[in-house]
Design a protein around this nucleic acid. Structure first.
Lengths: 255, 255
DNA sequence: AACATAATTTTGGCATACCAATATTCAAAT
DNA sequence: ATTTGAATATTGGTATGCCAAAATTATGTT
């Protein structure tokens, strides 16, 4: 049967045994990109794609659900499926493809703005929560994982404090990119037994102080400096003995 | 044709009967919440849920795909499905849920930073492209759609010029949120016959001038002012006669 | 008792078949 | 010629059944 051949080929070419519906979904995205459909336009039917890819309609249907959850299409019973959003970058960039330093640069710019936005509107509850996280960071340095969780929690809590869901969403996305990035994990693993954590903890304290004062520009500067420190530290680490990171060091600190 | 209009109205105002798999998916989320499973724990099998909800396994399977796309669970063939993330911290919003002004605020902060990042590293080709887009914007004001496309193109080209994929990815995401937002479409539709476009075109020119000078802070300020103008304009428009926008006007300009 | 391995069960993967809602076509009535 | 409405076709919705991978259990060997 034809679909078995396809299945075998794909499982050979792609290392990770992805679920087939994902492949179909990605293929459909490519087809959409090629045909350059406009928002609102009607997509080919499930049956058409099924025949095109040589799979059952069930799989195409599952792929459609994936695209629907991603808010790329809208499915209407008895009518068809329609383009809802531009697919743009949703397909092209995998988290594993971004360099740690371009991610850091983006975080430096965006998170310092977020800190500035949070300062005027932050609540006492938010400030207390940040203090609690700082206490955890001060006391508990057991595992790298725990420290990382607290770190993430601190930064995202500030984003939460802006009361702007878009900013929170953006920050969360950046941290997801970070935590899912293999290169960053490698870099991060090297820091676990150094004293850089103390430096960063101190940075966090400075940020919180500015937030307490509701000083927007002070918070922006404190967060910017914190991420500058992180950037410098990681740059040194990658500079000393890391031939592995060749090609991932674009967008290095340039200040 | 008359029924088309009716069809459009119903699809916009009256939420289409949700697809069953969504209901099942939400129910499963509730079940997970009740049973308070930990990350990594194994979920009940598809067959169990099928019997529990009195539906076929196909539907449960589709619901599982939904949860998998939402990165809430992980599905392993022959083994089972496992909790991947805690649903309490799930901050995934629908684009349609964000208010135009919180989106604008986020864009103002992030895009002005992006402009600043682009200034030192922008290439001559990028500058030429921006000039071309400006020419298009100056000449061709035929349709709102075309103008919007050019606008998007201008802003995203600057993000592209940063040579930072994360920043480009972020900016693209923000514009996708904008273009997919029904409230923004309503607001935007009101501007089509005003002269605000000239104002914004002038803003764009100012941004380009700063980019040409490779003046980071100048570009940041120009972009910030541009989006400030947009914010003010849209705020006036929504203020005058727009009872529809109640509840969407949080995160208003506060400068 | 231990380990290895074969048989069995469990579990998700995928396809087929039929159902229901929507859209289209076409013929009959005016 | 237009309108109406029933017949038909199209399209997504759902259920059932069988397949393959993984996990488990049973069994045999040392």
């Amino acid at each position: 049967m034809a679909y078995q051949i396809i299945s075998n080929i794909t499982t050979k070419n792609i290392p990770m045994a992805e679920r087939l519906y994902r492949e179909i979904g990605e293929s459909i995205k490519q087809e959409i990109a090629k045909s350059s459909l406009k928002i609102g336009d009607k997509l080919p039917t499930e049956r058409v794609y099924a025949e095109l890819f040589g799979v059952s309609r069930t799989l195409v249907r599952e792929a459609f659900i994936m695209l629907e959850i991603e808010e790329l299409i809208e499915v209407r019973k008895g009518s068809g499926s329609y383009l809802k959003n531009n697919l743009s970058l949703k397909t092209s960039h995998k988290v594993s493809d971004v360099g740690p330093f371009e991610l850091l640069q983006a975080r430096q710019e965006i998170e310092s703005s977020i800190a500035a936005c949070a300062a005027p509107v932050i609540t006492k509850q938010d400030l207390q929560k940040l203090q609690d996280i700082l206490d955890i960071e001060s006391a508990e340095l057991e595992t790298v994982e725990k420290a990382n969780d607290a770190d993430r929690d601190f930064h995202l809590s500030i984003a939460q404090a802006t009361q702007n869901t878009v900013l929170l969403d953006t920050a969360t996305r950046l941290w997801d990119m970070r935590d899912g990035n293999p290169m960053w994990k490698k870099l991060h693993a090297r820091i676990q037994d150094t004293s850089y954590h103390d430096q960063w903890l101190d940075d966090h304290k400075k940020v919180l102080i500015q937030l307490r004062k509701r000083n927007a520009e002070g918070a922006r500067q404190a967060m910017w400096q914190h991420l500058e420190n992180v950037k410098q530290t990681l740059f040194k680490l990658s500079d000393t003995d890391a031939p592995d990171f060749d090609g991932y060091l674009f967008a290095q600190p340039h200040n």
